[in-house]
Design a protein around this nucleic acid. Sequence first.
DNA 1: ACTTATTATGTTTATTTGACACAATAAAGG
DNA 2: CCTTTATTGTGTCAAATAAACATAATAAGT
Lengths: 269, 269
Amino acid sequence: MLKRHNKMKETDFYSLENKIKTFVPGISLDCVVFGYQDRSLHILLLKCRNTDVWALPGGFLPANSEMEEEACNILEERTGAKNIYLTQFYTFSSLKRGWNCNELSAKTFRLARSIWPKEFLPTFDLWFNQRFISTAFVALVDAKKVTPTPDFISEACLWVPVKELPQLILDHGVIIKKALEYLRTRINYLPIGKELLDEKFTMIDLQVLYEAILGKQLDRGNFYRKIMKLNMLKRHEKLMTGAQNKAPYLYSIDNKVYDQLIINGIGFI
Amino acid sequence: MLKRHNKMKETDFYSLENKIKTFVPGISLDCVVFGYQDRSLHILLLKCRNTDVWALPGGFLPANSEMEEEACNILEERTGAKNIYLTQFYTFSSLKRGWNCNELSAKTFRLARSIWPKEFLPTFDLWFNQRFISTAFVALVDAKKVTPTPDFISEACLWVPVKELPQLILDHGVIIKKALEYLRTRINYLPIGKELLDEKFTMIDLQVLYEAILGKQLDRGNFYRKIMKLNMLKRHEKLMTGAQNKAPYLYSIDNKVYDQLIINGIGFI
DNA sequence: ACTTATTATGTTTATTTGACACAATAAAGG
DNA sequence: CCTTTATTGTGTCAAATAAACATAATAAGT
């Protein structure tokens, strides 16, 4: 699942240099990509080259692109997946969010600048040495359908459990915190089940997902009844795990019912 | 309540010209200011000079200001009130939201350009002829404590009922729609009662306010019981209206209880 | 046959919601 | 002081929901 680009290709910079000329100045995009794996909630993070500092996937806004469109492109580059569900949730603009906001960010900044080709340093300074406003998106993806791919500034792209977040650049920790709050408070209106789970999933998977987002345990019997009453699931064959017990059924989302449900709120909290 | 600045002062332009040089390019702020008056929800709107087109109060972002801080300043200029409650709710960035998005906006644009002093036209074009990203805020104010004041591009600043919105420039109609949705879906977490009502108010006023935001009627008895159980109100003397009936009590918010309540959601929907 | 976890339903209690009703209260007018 | 009127606080009652447990049938594997 982990790919490394330890040798940076020169062409990366040339294409970036060309792209930079078309970017809207002062604006960046950051994506908090949620995935569900091993019974817990994960976020997609990039490990900055030669450091132990991590960052959210992000990028700049081309002058002729819509924000959502570009966030989608960034995610496609980082995951290989198209048509990822995403929604804007906040714009971070604090004067204190720059590269000199803490030693970690400053270190990463110096590193990035040192890697940067000499002839393009003016561009670097133009872009990274000014105030940045960042519009942040929440994305929900099926972790199984995704191939995390680092960008030119990172050496790894990994799913990290939200309970074990590493040190992060800039205000990315704040952004993630706000995204988690957004996920929790908007759980009734977001296509949690549809986007975060595999095509087919067990009832327990759905329940544990809700538990992970809400941060509390739910009663199995009551959860089962509530979900079934919503009529949003289609039941399929069983999942044979090899364990010596009755195999759990697999379910999938009935999109027609589900899409209607989350418009008015699924009514779970 | 209505003030007119039909003659624009030349100094307005000079100070604007100076300010413009310090603005972050490409970013603007818009405020959807909610007020409660005559038993219905209102929004503060500016009537553009010599036209029947209206706009939200807004402005640009000085390079050394926080967004919230500047939104606060804009509101102080439009209302005379300090320390207005506001919260960011969305950033609008569509490529289609420019001055040429519809005939109304184009007309307003031409008007603004014609009023603009000739010697500053380059600045005008630099600022108004490019793509704009606008971060929008919801503000809640006590309409009684406010003196609506037009800016240099408008001839009036008025409270307009949300049920009777006029024609608006750019995508301001979309912004208002989104703000109303935000208000409705976050009603449990916003200091509705505290910020929108007068210091002292009657129970019916509080109820009608909730009804206006939720867009549906509530049962008086049940509403009364629910509110009283929350322990968030202090009862005061009666409001003598002169009508031949028992005068209603006045209430005020118990801030200590209320602030705690809206953290976890007041539980009204 | 035995162990185990899944599935579907049952039970019980407490709480909430919605809709409607009613009597006591008090302000003002005659 | 009597009448009119709207406010206030409470009553009621059915239906729905929530929360916490419990249980029996089922079936996969050993």
